[in-house]
Simulated scan of single mutants.
Amino acid sequence: MIQKLLNSGLHWREKEFKRNEFLKMAGSTDTDIYFIENGSIRIYMMDENEERIIRFGYTGNIIVSLDSFLSGKPSGFYMQAIKKTTVRVAPQKDFYQFIQSGEENLKFWNRILEDLVLQQIEREKDLLINSPRERFNRVLKRSPKLFQEVPNKYIANYLRMSPETLSRLKKS
């Protein structure tokens, strides 16, 4: 279905981001939708000068600053390339025209939203679990590709543990 979206006639523009370059800064409004052709992105917020990673996107994923996309208001999230990343970008207006042009397209968007809600529920569960080992195992089972695409220091932040704890868990 993602291939259908990419070949749908939507006006996708290709954009390349260098390592550590921002797709979006906190406090800005971003109503674009992104398809990651290659590379990886982290989405995070700042909490008292500390980064809190909430989500990753990597090759083959669709990402969006969902709060800003849906509301048209500024978001508190940063979107940053972890490594050199190439994305296809489509504006919200064009995307909405696409999803309104057919029932299958609307179902596709609903599946994306349902997946995001389910991912958010899993993320909330992860944050409520005290055991670092259990958090690690849950994420490894759910997203094994994450450990190939994203450096350990970011995964450790996402899992709310030190890089050393993550390293020990990966070895055991």
Score class of each variant (00 low, 15 high):
residue 2 I to P: 03
residue 4 K to R: 14
residue 7 N to A: 11
residue 8 S to M: 05
residue 13 R to D: 09
residue 16 E to K: 15
residue 20 N to R: 15
residue 26 A to S: 15
residue 29 T to P: 06
residue 30 D to A: 04
residue 30 D to E: 09
residue 31 T to V: 10
residue 32 D to Y: 13
residue 33 I to M: 11
residue 34 Y to F: 15
residue 35 F to V: 01
residue 36 I to K: 04
residue 39 G to E: 07
residue 40 S to I: 06
residue 44 Y to R: 01
residue 45 M to Y: 14
residue 47 D to K: 15
residue 50 E to N: 15
residue 51 E to Q: 12
residue 54 I to F: 13
residue 56 F to I: 01
residue 56 F to D: 05
residue 57 G to E: 00
residue 59 T to K: 11
residue 62 I to F: 02
residue 62 I to V: 11
residue 65 S to E: 09
residue 66 L to N: 02
residue 68 S to G: 08
residue 68 S to L: 05
residue 70 L to M: 12
residue 71 S to R: 11
residue 71 S to H: 10
residue 72 G to S: 08
residue 73 K to I: 03
residue 73 K to R: 14
residue 75 S to N: 07
residue 78 Y to P: 07
residue 82 I to R: 05
residue 83 K to V: 14
residue 87 V to D: 01
residue 92 Q to N: 09
residue 92 Q to A: 04
residue 94 D to I: 04
residue 95 F to W: 02
residue 96 Y to D: 00
residue 99 I to E: 03
residue 99 I to V: 09
residue 101 S to M: 00
residue 103 E to H: 12
residue 104 E to L: 07
residue 111 R to G: 04
residue 112 I to D: 03
residue 115 D to P: 00
residue 122 E to Q: 13
residue 123 R to Y: 15
residue 123 R to S: 12
residue 131 S to G: 10
residue 133 R to C: 04
residue 136 F to N: 06
residue 138 R to M: 14
residue 145 K to Q: 14
residue 146 L to H: 08
residue 147 F to V: 09
residue 148 Q to L: 14
residue 149 E to V: 03
residue 156 A to H: 03
residue 159 L to K: 05
residue 161 M to P: 05
residue 163 P to T: 00
residue 165 T to S: 14
residue 167 S to R: 09
residue 170 K to G: 08
residue 171 K to F: 06
residue 172 S to P: 02
